[in-house]
């Protein structure tokens, strides 16, 4: 393993643990008014995990798109493949964290409204994004030739990344109609003190942790490519 990914992973883990500690033992419980009664919401603690995970996932989807663009630019000049692996690894990390977003989101929904799924616009938006990126993996496995696979993946990753903000925007269009209430009114601005600290620590920890995963995955992809190449050489001889 590379030193850099190890360092990133340890700092990230440390920060994440700190974030969890802060979230559970330091931050106050959110109090909401439901039918005139004040109810403390323990379930809101998942927020310190859910939002950083969502942020990382979106970040890596966008990074995947940027690697797509870089690949195509490089491709025009030298037609080299290195950005294909980077893009692939980025989308994988984005997807992995996307699954965590779905799981934490569903848990939160369940805890607050006692249903697993409520077609909440944001969670639905996320589900759509996950399907977009499921298409990315389906596409990759459906193209045999390496250079074509890399080209198509890059193009699709760009389209998908552009689709991320568009999907959120469209979700908001739906929300214009008062069918779906905007449920979680916590925003960065209204957070203060320990809440903000716990949130920021978690965000940073999660981001560093994700980058370390990305680097490790990239190393793994390179190693497996090297292995394939060596195998081929042995066969030829």
């Amino acid at each position: 393993m590379r030193k850099s990914s190890l360092i990133l992973a340890s700092i990230g883990t440390l920060l994440l643990l700190t974030g969890i500690y802060l979230a559970f033992f330091v931050t106050p419980e959110i109090v909401v008014r439901i039918e005139g009664e004040e109810v403390a919401q323990f379930s809101q603690k998942i927020f310190y995990f859910h939002v950083p995970v969502a942020w990382v996932s979106l970040l890596f989807f966008i990074i995947g798109g940027i690697f797509g663009i870089m690949f195509l630019i490089k491709f025009l000049i030298k037609r080299e493949q290195s950005y294909d692996q980077k893009g692939y690894a980025a989308v994988e990390i984005g997807f992995l964290f996307g699954i965590l977003v779905m799981i934490t989101g569903v848990l939160w929904t369940r805890a607050d409204w006692s249903v697993w799924w409520d077609w909440d616009p944001r969670l639905t938006t996320y589900l759509i994004l996950m399907l977009v990126y499921a298409g990315y993996f389906a596409l990759r496995s459906s193209v045999q030739e390496d250079s074509t696979k890399a080209r198509f993946s890059a193009v699709y990753a760009i389209i998908a990344a552009i689709n991320v903000p568009l999907t959120f925007w469209a979700g908001r269009l739906e929300a214009l109609k008062p069918v779906h209430p905007v449920v979680f009114k916590i925003s960065g601005a209204s957070m203060e003190g320990p809440m903000l600290a716990a949130f920021l620590v978690s965000m940073l920890g999660m981001t560093l942790f994700a980058f370390s995963l990305f680097l490790m995955r990239l190393d793994l992809l390179r190693a497996s490519e090297e292995l394939d190449y060596l195998k081929e050489q042995v066969e030829v001889v």
Binding site: I128, L129, L131, V132, A134, G135, A138, L139, S142, V143, Q144, T148, F152, V155, Y156, I159, A160, N163, L166, T167, W169, A170, G171, L173, E174
Partner: peptide
């Protein structure tokens, strides 16, 4: 893209539908 994949026309809905959802909404 889909016509150049192994699964050809099966691939189109998988790629096309999720990307088109914002427009559909």
């Amino acid at each position: 893209i889909s016509i150049n994949t192994k699964t050809r026309d099966l691939m189109l809905p998988i790629l096309f539908l999720p990307i088109i959802i914002p427009l559909l909404i």
